[in-house]
Design a protein around this nucleic acid. Structure first.
Lengths: 344, 344
DNA sequence: TTGTAAGCGTTATCAC
DNA sequence: GTGATAACGCTTACAA
C-alpha cells in the first residue's frame, strides 16, 4: 500500500502509511519471495539484487511486519519475564536485588535478539501462562522469584510449558531452577554466629517462599544443639513490615543475640528496630543479611551479608530457557554463595 | 488442526498441538466468525451459542492466536518501555527509583490489558524505534529517563511516532514529557542552604541529562549573588563513580559547605567521601539528595532530600501515551516536588 | 442471529 | 537465482 495520486493530483495514502513487502517487490522489480530472501539473508540471491532490494526497502523505511512473520513461523522469539511487583504495590521499592536480575536477563535476551515481555505475577493456577503459549505470544517464561508458586510451576512443568525459575534449587523439582546455594547461605550465617559465641538466634523471613525456607533450613542445621532459634515472619516482605514485626516482637519477648535476615533491606529494618529497643550491633548481637546490595557496605553499621553471584544469573537463565524451547533438557544449577564479614 | 488417526490407528498431530479457530468452529457446529464474535464479546450472538462455543473452546484449551489477530487489527496493544540499563551494566543497581516508575507503568498497562515490551536503551538516531512501529510490533513508547536523548526524541516527535517521556518538562519540547518539577527541586535545595547560612555550594550531577540540568538551574537561581557554586560531574552516575569523583576533587580543592546531589544514592556516596576527608554533616556542611528513596531516612545521618510524587507517574504516562495512540494530543505535566528535611 | 468469502503480510513449496 | 501460488489463523464486509 503506497502513495497513489488522488483525484486532485495530491498524494494519498490508501489506508495508512504502511508499506508492505509486495510494495517493495513491485518498486524493486522483483517478486515477494525475493524480497523475503534478501531480508532474511538467504545466500541464494545475487549480490546485485540484494543491494538493490535493500536500497529500495531502506528508502521507503520498510520493516517486515512481525505479526505476519510470527503467524507463519513456529517461533515468536519472545520470552515473558514474570516479576513480583505485587509485593511492592502502592509502596516504595527498597530492594534492588530482583532488578539486577532483570537487567541481566534483559541483556542476555537482547544479545540473542529475543524480545522481553514483562509481566507482573498473576495469581491463579497457571492457566494464563498456558494460554500465552497457545496464543503464540511467547515461546517460554522466566520466573524471577519462586515465591509461593511452586505448586503452580509443577503443574506447568507437567504440561510441557518451557520455563525456568530463579529461586530455590531442589532436586525434587520437576523443572529447571537457577538460584544461589540458599542452604549453604544459611549455614554460613549460622557458623558465623557460632564463632561469635551467639546462642539465641532469630531468623527473619517467610518460609512460604522456597528459597527462604532453604536458608532457614541451613541456619537450623548450623544451630544443631548449640543455639536456640526463633522465627519472625512478616507476610509482606518490605522494609516497613519487617521493622514493625520486629518492633512488636521485641515489646514482649527477649531480644535475640543473633539475627539472620532474608535480605539486606530486612537487615536494615532489623538494625533500626533493635537500636530503638536499645540493642546495638555488633555489641549486643550479630547480624547477617542477604544479597550484598550496594548500600549494605555503606550502612551504619556496615552489614555482614551473604553474597550471591547474580551477575551470571541472567545469562544462565536465558541459556537454559533457550535449551528448553529448542526441545532439549535443562538441569537446575546452584550459584556460589559466600559470607562477607563487615561490622555486624 | 486437531488429532487425526494415523495409519496405525494411533492419534497423530498433524503439525503441532495447536488448535485453531476453525477447529473450534467445526467442533461446536458453528462458523468461524461466530467463534470470533463469541471470543470478542459481540452482543449479536445468542446466549446459548455463546455458552456452547465457550465450553468447547475451554475444553480444548483454545486461545486466539494473537499474531493472526494483530495481523488483521490496526492495534498491537503492546507498548515498549525503554529503560537505561546501560548505566548499570556489569555493576550493581543501587538506585531503585527508576524501577518504582517501571512498576507503576507495568501496573497501569496491565489494567488496560496492554502488553509491556521491555527494552534497554540503544544508542542511535531513533531509526530502530520507527522500525518497531513500521513492523507493527508496538503502538508506542514510554521512555523512562530522558538521559541524553533529547535530540533523538525531537526527531521522533517530528515523525509522528507516539511516545511519552519521564524526564525534564520543558515548554520548548515538541513532545509529551512527565516529570517532577526539577527547577523547583533545585530552588528548594538552594533556599534550604541559604537558611543554613551556607555559602560555598556544590552541585553533583551530569548536566547532559536534561532533568538534572534543570535541578542545577534551580540551584543556580537560588544562589544568586549569595553563594558560589561549583559543579562535580561524573560521567557514569553510580554510587562508586560519584564517590571516586568527589574523593579526587577533595584532594586538591577546598570542601564545599553545602552539597546538592542528583540522587539519594549519590548523596550517600558524597557523605562517605566527605566523612573520609574529615567533613561531617550536618556539622560541617548541609546536604540535599533527590528521590527520597526508602533508605534515605534510615541512612546515618538521615538524608534531607527532594521527594517526587512518583506513585502517580506510571498511570499518567500510560494515560497520555494512550491519548497519543488514539490520535489525540497530550500535554506535558509537572508533578509536585517537596523538600523533606532530615538530619543533613 | 448466523454464514460465506475475502484479505491482512508473510514464508514455504515447488516450479522454472 | 527467481517467481507463482498456497497456506498461516484471524476479522471484517456482506449476504442470508
Amino acid at each position: 500500500m503506497v502513495d497513489q495520486p488522488d483525484q486532485n493530483g495530491r498524494a494519498k495514502r490508501s489506508r495508512s502509511m504502511s508499506v508492505s513487502m509486495a510494495d517493495i517487490a513491485r518498486l524493486a522489480n522483483v517478486s515477494k519471495p525475493t524480497v523475503s530472501r534478501v531480508l532474511n539473508g538467504s545466500p541464494l540471491v545475487t549480490e546485485a539484487t540484494r543491494k538493490h532490494v535493500l536500497a529500495v526497502a531502506s528508502e521507503h523505511g520498510y520493516a517486515v511486519n512481525r505479526n505476519a512473520q510470527k503467524l507463519r513461523q513456529t517461533r515468536t522469539d519472545t520470552v515473558q519475564v514474570v516479576l513480583d511487583f505485587a509485593s511492592h504495590r502502592g509502596g516504595r521499592i527498597a530492594d534492588p536485588f530482583i532488578f539486577e536480575l532483570l537487567a541481566g536477563v534483559a541483556e542476555a535476551l537482547s544479545v540473542r535478539n529475543v524480545d522481553l515481555l514483562l509481566s507482573s505475577a498473576r495469581k491463579g493456577d497457571g492457566r494464563s501462562y498456558q494460554d500465552q503459549i497457545a496464543a503464540r505470544v511467547v515461546d517460554g517464561f522466566i520466573f524471577l522469584g519462586q515465591g509461593e508458586r511452586d505448586p503452580m510451576l509443577r503443574k506447568l512443568a507437567k504440561l510441557g510449558v518451557p520455563f525456568v525459575v530463579w529461586g530455590a534449587v531442589d532436586p525434587d523439582e520437576p523443572y529447571c531452577a537457577v538460584g544461589s546455594d540458599n542452604l549453604l547461605g544459611g549455614e554460613l550465617a549460622g557458623r558465623y554466629f557460632l564463632k561469635q559465641g551467639r546462642r539465641r538466634w532469630m531468623f527473619i523471613g517467610n518460609d512460604a517462599h522456597a528459597e527462604i525456607r532453604m536458608r532457614h533450613d541451613g541456619l537450623t542445621k548450623a544451630a544443631g544443639d548449640a543455639a536456640t532459634l526463633t522465627t519472625l515472619t512478616s507476610e509482606e516482605m518490605s522494609y516497613v513490615s519487617t521493622y514493625r514485626a520486629l518492633k512488636d516482637h521485641l515489646a514482649d519477648h527477649p531480644a535475640p543475640d543473633a539475627i539472620f535476615a532474608f535480605s539486606d533491606t530486612a537487615a536494615m529494618a532489623a538494625i533500626t528496630a533493635m537500636r530503638e529497643a536499645g540493642h546495638i550491633a555488633p555489641r549486643d548481637y550479630s547480624l547477617v543479611g542477604y544479597n550484598n546490595i550496594p548500600f549494605a557496605a555503606d550502612f551504619t553499621p556496615a552489614i555482614t551479608t551473604i553474597e550471591q553471584e547474580t551477575h551470571l544469573a541472567g545469562a544462565i537463565l536465558v541459556e537454559k530457557l533457550m535449551q528448553l524451547i529448542d526441545g532439549g533438557r535443562a538441569n537446575s544449577t546452584t550459584l556460589p554463595t559466600r559470607l562477607i564479614v563487615r561490622e555486624t
